[in-house]
């Protein structure tokens, strides 16, 4: 973790928590099913996951895996449903390096630099932060066919070294951007976008949508 000089330690701690949730990353497939006596994913366990935080969630989306995979694999699409991700710039290269610009409290931003660390076409995309990133994280999204014509089960896992642990998450939570909540909402928005072509809002005017309000606050 590199402190960001401009926003100070507390800000960085909060921002990192924020960023992780906002970006809604994945976690380690290899660790997902470790250490339990049942078939539930690790993120559903009651016990702690050690000194790192783990966030995970599954939704079923009524679309073929290939379509969902293709959308996700183009990282520049992700800000459409990841509310706190301002933009993702792809640098390309063999490991598809990308820089995520993530909104943080106080109108600041932090940068997450990632590369793809594993992928199987139409099934799985895994990424991890690289040297120079403001945040250390690993993420993974998997696409598994659901039974019958129910579409695809999309699981998102994030593992990150929570800076400041509980304190960092508490600060992030105060800003309504607690990673787990944010990841869950982002995944729901992904489902909405894929199934309906839009993201549900009860705003009566364009200026009243959450996206518009965030723009205003930034």
């Amino acid at each position: 973790m590199k402190p960001n000089r401009q926003i100070g330690i507390a800000g960085t701690v909060a921002a990192a928590g924020v960023a992780l949730g906002a970006a809604a990353f994945g976690a380690f497939l290899s660790r997902r099913h470790d250490g339990g006596g049942d078939d539930a994913p690790q993120f559903a366990r009651r016990s702690n996951h050690g000194d790192h935080a783990l966030v995970g969630r599954t939704v079923t989306i009524r679309k073929p895996a290939a379509e969902l995979y293709a959308f996700w694999r183009d990282f520049s699409n992700l800000p459409q449903f990841m509310e706190n991700v301002e933009s993702i710039a792809e640098q390309g290269g063999a490991r598809s390096r990308a820089t995520w610009t993530i909104k943080a409290p106080g109108g600041t931003t932090v940068e997450l630099r990632t590369e793809i660390v594993g992928e199987t076409e139409n099934e799985r995309i895994a990424w991890a932060s690289v040297e120079g990133s403001d945040i250390e994280t690993r993420g993974e999204v998997t696409f598994t066919p659901a039974p019958g014509d129910r579409g695809t089960r999309v699981s998102l896992h994030i593992e990150y070294d929570a800076p400041g642990g509980a304190v960092g998450r508490a600060i992030a939570k105060a800003f309504q951007r607690e990673p787990e909540v944010q990841a869950r909402h982002d995944l729901k928005r992904f489902k909405m976008l894929m199934e309906t072509g839009e993201i549900a809002t009860s705003a009566r005017r364009k200026s009243e949508t959450r996206a518009a309000k965030q723009q205003e606050n930034a």
Binding site: T60, R62, R150, G151, V181, R184, H185, D186, K188, R189, K191, M192, E195, T196, I199, A200, T201, S202, R210
Partner: peptide
């Protein structure tokens, strides 16, 4: 109701998964 989710497709429209904004579902 969105018409495109699992519940809408089986005509359980009042259980639509996509019409309630994500941040209001909790």
């Amino acid at each position: 109701s969105c018409g495109g989710c699992f519940h809408c497709k089986i005509q359980q429209y009042s259980a639509c998964e996509n019409s309630n904004p994500a941040e209001k579902q909790d």
